[in-house]
Design a protein around this nucleic acid. Structure first.
Lengths: 336, 336
DNA sequence: GTGAAAGCGCTAACAT
DNA sequence: ATGTTAGCGCTTTCAC
């Protein structure tokens, strides 16, 4: 493929004029510009982004680290990131880590070698290792933004759902329907965003003079199977409740399975509300009432923060909090 | 960040020795190697992939073009591609096109500018424009592999499901259950893989002496809503059937919705089988019996073909046909 | 086993 | 409005 010198020669100008035509067309005379464009087209010339990156120290790549693109929460996030990125001449490089610390580290290494301009971290687990991990990135001076995670003690930009309010609203929705005995199928409480959801639940109870009961809370992992097991465990200890607040759709799906097997009718015998609204939630029976996270917007906003700060040469320093919206479907009913 | 010269200076060797330590360690004496490694670590040196690409004309990037990562079929494919790629020191750049020809073209432009080493095309629509599109890529001399599509008249590598057999097996499964009146909710017949599924259906009918009826086939798009509408249209014309072969899970989901609304019990009143097996299919009620496509393997195999041919400097030239596996769940019943 | 020279294709900085 | 020079950080090639 033709390079800048061949185009220059053929067009009878210096290579710098060709460069300008592609980067600062205004600085080039109209006729020259036309001539150069014609020659460039004829020769099939396209500026090498690699050579450009070499010179400018800017690759227009951003790295996106997340546990697993197969988790239905992420594709929309990824699409949001990539849509904003692409609109602004950036490309996204994805790294699936399966929450494996070694892989997270090697992904960063790879990104560093590749000279990416910034990093977005989606849904990393948030333990102590992740604090170290994030600090490592920040120390390198690479702009970064967190999605769907808040890591205490680290001063990072992030885009997050208002998890307190989501937990509050979900609970309030059940209360308004007449429920007073509301159990919680909880995602890992070591992760801040899930603690926030629980706090929201507690506050809603308090505001409506309902007593908080420790034995109404049961914790598992963010997996369908875990939702099943966690609910099973809970119901064995105590079946005196009329509604469930599941902290994520996955766990709600697991509950659905348990209920089906044990002939518990949703919502007749039991109301269920959840948080996420992934694709499947509208399709199961009964369709799941859930607090929809704005997944696409999360990705989009994160990319926006990141890229704006890259362009400004400033460190990203914005916290965006998104609302979770109640999607009323058919898994809850009014009682009493 | 330190560059190769600083490391060389600090280690008291030439920069070429440093380069060799990272690329051909065997050519360097053991002691020198150790010394260099130590210095490199201390200085936090990492070879610039950009500079390397500039020199070698190889970026170790592959481009992956697909309609939309949000479509639940693709995340697993992407993961398969990326897992193989990453294992072999390649990274994947994703481009969502929404099947928009302009976007497909501009994605290619972008990939070309970036100097990617090869392209994987997943699920592009397959019309005339796509033939031209694919030929364009091949003409550029860029190695490419198709996933989940066969484009007639273009000599390209591909990884595909045995769609004829998938259609055949799905139909035979219903026949073995005693069904003789089997309608088809079809995905677009302008796409070769769906025509193959229909051929499989026809052959299964033939092999079991069941007459093929034109009015048993109704065509729509690969969308939940379209499954709903297409089935509605079909059933209005003719409700004399006991089973449905839906060509993709999405359309089956749409049918589920219609059946629920119209009090048609699955599988009691109607048996449904489909092709795909996306995440949701196991969670709906009743769980959907479907021919599982090997999505991850598709991506993995495509990346393997592509990268092997990049490394060999040869043009990819392999056709991989994957089996679709029957996942027996609860949407079909035995009759008569 | 190690080093010196050249150059990949571009842009920043400085001319004119 | 256009051109000249230098150099980004590597690897290829050739030399010793």
């Amino acid at each position: 493929m033709a390079n800048i010198y061949e185009v220059a020669k053929e067009a009878g100008v210096s290579h710098m004029t060709v460069s300008r035509v592609f980067n600062n067309p205004d600085l080039v005379g109209k006729n020259t510009r036309k001539k150069v464009m014609t020659v460039a087209n004829n020769l099939g010339y396209r500026p090498s982004q690699v050579a450009r990156s070499m010179r400018t120290k800017k690759t227009n790549y951003i790295g996106l680290i997340l546990p697993d693109i197969i988790n239905p929460f992420f594709p929309e996030v990824v699409r949001g990131v990539d849509d904003y990125a692409r609109k602004n001449k950036y490309n996204t490089i994805l790294a699936n880590t399966d929450n494996d610390y070694e892989v997270e580290i090697s992904s960063i290494e790879m990104f560093l070698n590749r000279g990416i301009d910034g990093i977005i971290l989606g849904g990393i687990a948030g333990g102590k290792k992740d604090t170290a991990f994030l600090n490592k990135i920040i120390d390198k001076g690479i702009p970064s933004v967190l999605i769907d995670r808040f890591i205490p003690d680290v001063n990072s930009s992030y885009v997050i759902t208002d998890n307190f309010k989501a937990g509050y609203d979900a609970t309030k929705y059940l209360i308004d329907l007449g429920h007073k005995k509301i159990v919680v199928i909880s995602s890992p409480q070591k992760i801040k965003i899930f603690r926030d959801r629980l706090e929201g639940y507690k506050q809603a109870l308090k505001d409506h003079n309902i007593e908080y009961r420790e034995d109404y809370i049961c914790e598992g992992e963010e997996l369908v199977e875990s939702g099943y097991k966690t609910f099973k465990k809970l119901i064995k200890k105590n079946d005196d409740f009329t509604a469930v607040f599941a902290m994520c759709d996955f766990m709600a799906f697991g509950m659905y399975k348990f209920c089906k097997e044990n002939n518990i009718k949703i919502p007749d015998d039991l109301s269920i509300i959840s948080i996420d609204d992934i694709f499947t939630s509208a399709l199961i029976t009964p369709p799941l009432t859930t607090m929809a996270q704005q997944k696409y917007e999360m990705g989009y906003a994160a990319a926006k923060i990141l890229i704006e700060s890259i362009e400004k040469g400033a460190f990203p320093d914005k916290k965006v909090v998104l609302k979770a919206n109640l999607i009323e479907r058919e898994s809850c009913r009014s009682i009493g």
